[in-house]
């Protein structure tokens, strides 16, 4: 699935000397191609998360469209968009994200259990991801007892579980050591190899190594 942004822009209301709003994204065209891992870097506050959230269908852009294989995300009603995100877009949000009443494994299975009982294949895939990301021993641990890095890996496994065609990861390696960073990028790489369109926002220095394409954000302007 190809994710295309057309003349996408985002402004936030914020008073300054010159204007009443702050432009987080200048109008940009952007395509996320299937089978490719795109790495997006840029200074803090440059608008990376804003772009990622708009692409994920989580934040209405000020102008422009986000098209998934030609389908306009923001033209869909909420129920349809939510279902679309559940089926086709795996999102790893910035920061810690967990449902605290569920165990780590249950958190990972959440995208499935939200709608139905997980199949054996899905259970197996969950185990596979746990092993791959080195958190298999923590399967039954509640999130409150996890370290920041463990929770981050949990969020990645959760996003990858339904084998989404689009993966949007916001600083997926923020809390991780070198070894785990490598593991995470390899997992994202695998997802891309299996045909997903993957976008990873990162501050990581060596991330280009894994990337099929590298973009940079400068004050809301996308380069590369």
């Amino acid at each position: 699935m190809t994710l295309t942004a057309k003349q996408l822009s985002k402004e936030f209301p914020r008073k300054s000397r010159t204007s009443n709003c702050f432009t987080a994204l200048c109008p940009l065209d952007f395509t996320l191609e299937p089978g490719k891992l795109t790495v997006l870097t840029g200074r803090s506050g440059s608008g990376k998360s804003t772009l990622l959230n708009v692409l994920a269908g989580l934040m209405q852009p000020t102008q422009g469209q986000v098209l998934a294989d030609g389908q306009d995300l923001y033209a869909m009603p909420d129920v349809a968009l939510s279902e679309f995100r559940n089926r086709h877009i795996g999102v790893v949000p910035q920061g810690q994200t967990a449902v605290y009443s569920l165990s780590l494994l249950e958190n990972i299975l959440l995208p499935v259990t939200l709608f139905r009982r997980p199949s054996d294949a899905e259970q197996q895939r969950a185990q596979l991801l746990l092993t791959e990301l080195g958190i298999v021993k923590l399967a039954d641990v509640p999130p409150a007892e996890l370290s920041g890095g463990e929770m981050k890996r949990m969020a990645i496994a959760r996003a990858l579980l339904p084998q989404p065609e689009i993966v949007l990861a916001d600083e997926p390696t923020a809390d991780l050591d070198e070894e785990n960073t490598d593991i995470v990028f390899r997992a994202l790489q695998t997802a891309a190899k299996n045909g997903a369109a993957v976008l990873a926002v990162t501050h990581e220095q060596g991330a280009e190594r894994y990337a099929d394409r590298v973009c940079t954000m400068h004050n809301g302007i996308l380069e590369g």
Partner: peptide
């Protein structure tokens, strides 16, 4: 609220 945001991210509709 953060937990509810996660539910939205994984595809729970506003209604659900």
């Amino acid at each position: 609220r953060r937990e509810f945001a996660v539910m939205r991210v994984v595809g729970m509709s506003r209604r659900s």
